[in-house]
């Protein structure tokens, strides 16, 4: 772990999003709108990880997200770890929790859904589907989509 940490510069204060599956990295960037941020951001892609083989990591200097913002990450990668850094120390570790409702994040898979045909925000309820798995149900057309198959707006 020591060697790996050296691959990405340490952070004085800010947020570290770790253990991102590498194929989800760009979705995480889009979801948090990092491309619009002014602070320095370090992105590590395809780093070696004992736990996952390969992972990605994002360090955002001087930025602290709300729980609401961070919990959106649960939609695309539920197992990320979040560290809040102040004075080079991890002051808080968090896990993401899937919220009950997701507004404006996920696209409805139903092409005949109003949300795909009208300039409006999507809205999904998190439900258990018939196989006991977590699914998202569109607030508008009632169609369900598996959490594994979600597409972001």
């Amino acid at each position: 772990m020591k060697r790996e940490e050296l691959l990405v510069a340490a952070l004085e204060s800010g947020t570290v999003i770790d253990h991102i599956p590498s194929n989800k990295l760009f979705e995480v960037i889009n979801l948090l709108h990092l491309e619009k941020m002014k602070s320095s951001i370090t992105v590590g892609y395809n780093l070696k990880s004992n736990k996952m083989g390969h992972k990605s990591i994002i360090k955002i200097a001087g930025k602290f997200f709300s729980d609401e913002e961070l919990n959106q990450l649960a939609v695309i990668s539920p197992n990320v770890t979040l560290c809040i850094i102040r004075d080079y120390e991890v002051v808080e570790k968090k896990e993401v929790v899937l919220p009950d409702e997701l507004k404006g994040i996920v696209r409805c898979a139903n092409p005949k859904c109003i949300t795909n045909n009208e300039p409006m925000k999507t809205d999904f309820h998190v439900v258990d589907n018939e196989n006991g798995k977590v699914a998202l149900r569109c607030h508008y057309c009632n169609k369900e989509v598996d959490l594994d198959n979600v597409k972001l707006v």
């Binding site: 139903n110 005949k112 859904c113 109003i114 949300t115 569109c138 607030h139 508008y140 057309c141 009632n142």
Partner: peptide
């Protein structure tokens, strides 16, 4: 309406 969810919206 021909679109699903149109009434809710």
């Amino acid at each position: 309406h021909y679109l699903e969810g149109a009434a809710r919206y």
